[in-house]
Design a protein around this nucleic acid. Sequence first.
DNA 1: CCTCCACAGGAAGCGCAGGAGT
DNA 2: ACTCCTGCGCTTCCTGTGGAGG
Length: 413
Amino acid sequence: MPSFSEILSKPTVFADRNVLSPHYVPETLPFREKEIERIMVWLSPALKNERPRNIFIYGKTGTGKTCSVKHVLSKLSQHKSSAFSCYINCRMYNSRYRVIQKITKDLLPSLDSMGFGLAMLYEKMMHSVDFGDAQAGAESGGQAGKRLIVVLDEVDMVKDLDDLLYTLTRCNDELKRGSVSLIGISNKLSFKDQLGQRSKSSLCENEMVFAPYTANQLQSIIAQRAQIGFKPGVVEESAINLAAAITGQDVGDARYALKLLMKAGEIADEKGLSKITDKEVDEARRSVDRDVVFEAISTLPDHQQLVLLAVANLALDKGKNTRLAEAGEEDAQLLISGEVYEEYSKMCRRYRKPRRSARWYREYLNDLEMLGLITTIESGAGMRGRTRLIRIGYPASDVKKIVEKNFQIIESP
DNA sequence: CCTCCACAGGAAGCGCAGGAGT
DNA sequence: ACTCCTGCGCTTCCTGTGGAGG
C-alpha cells in the first residue's frame, strides 16, 4: 500500500507543472509584443480617466488572445487609477443576465447578488461605476467614477449577445463620471457577420486579428516554457523541435504544443526516465490525440454516438468481408448512407432508444463530419442514384469500444 | 429519351423546457 | 405564482439531383 509521501517523493522531470498549464500567463509573451502594445495603447485612456474604445479580437484557438489580454490587464492593475477590469469567460457566463451578474459581483464582492432581477443588478452595477464604492472613493481622494473594462472571452457563446452588447454600450449614455468599455474575444472569424448592425459598429471600434504561430515561433515558445517547467537538461532539443513540428502541421495552436509537453513529461515520469526524447513526444502525441477523440465522442449526444457506432460496425464488417475476398480495394471502407441508417436503426433497437427520422440522421452525419469523426463524399459513377459515401475518421474498433462503453452504463439487460 | 431510384437538403410546423414579464 | 414567449430538437412534407435501367 503506497503512501502519499512515497508518491510525492518519486523522482520527476517537472520543475513547475503550472508553467505548462494552458491557464498560465508567462512574464513575457514572445511574438505578441506588437499586439500587446496595441492593446495597451488602446486601453491607456483609462489611466487618464477617459473612456477607452471597445476592442474586438479574433484568432484561432491557442494563438495567445486570452493570454495577451490577461497580460495587459495585470499590467493595468499595477497602475493606480480609476480603471477596473473584469474578465468573463462567456462559456460559463453565457447570457446577458449571467454576465451582468458576474460584473456586479466583481464590482461589489460583498454583495450577495443571487436572487436579484436584471434591472436591480443593472442599477447596482451602474451605481458602482458612477460613484465608485466606499473604499475606492476614499483611496482616490473622493474622485469617483470607474473606467470599467469588461473582457468577454469566447463572446460567441452568449445566447442573447445583441441584447448584452446593447445594454453594456448604452451604459455610457447614462453614466456621468465612469464608463464601460468592452473587449470581445472570439475564435470564430465568421462571427462578426452574425452580429446585429448596431452591436457590430459598437463592439468593433478597434479590431485585431491574432495569426496562428508558425512552426519556428512555436519552437521558441515551447523552448521557453520547457526551460521553466522542467528541470534543467531534461528536454532534448530534438524533442522540442518535434513537438513544434507536430503542432505546426495543422494550425499553430500553442495550447496543443503545451499539452504535448505536459503529457511527454508525465510519460517520462511514469517510466522513471530522466530525459524527454522524441520517443516520449511521439507517444504523447498519440495519447493526446486519443484523449481528444475520446472526449469528442463521449460528449456527443446519444443518437450521434449511435450513428457513429453504426458506421464503425459496418466498417468492421466490410473490412472482414473484403479481407476474406482478398480484395484490397480502397473503397472497401466506403459505406452507403442508406445502409448506415439501417444499421443505426438496429442500434437504436438494441439500446432501447426511439429512432430518429432519416432527415435528422442526415443532420447527424453533417455534425459528425464537422467534428472530423467521419468524412463523406458524393457518390459518382457506378452508384445508383445520388447518395453520400461515408468513411470513418478513426480506427473503427477504437470508436466502437468508446461508444459501447458509454452505453454500457445506460443499457439495462 | 424518359422514368425510377435513392438519396440531399430546404421549409414549415410541432411539442417542449426554461426564461422573461406581469 | 401565473401566463407568455422563444429557442431548440425534431418530424413531416416537399422539391431537387444525378446515375441506372428500360
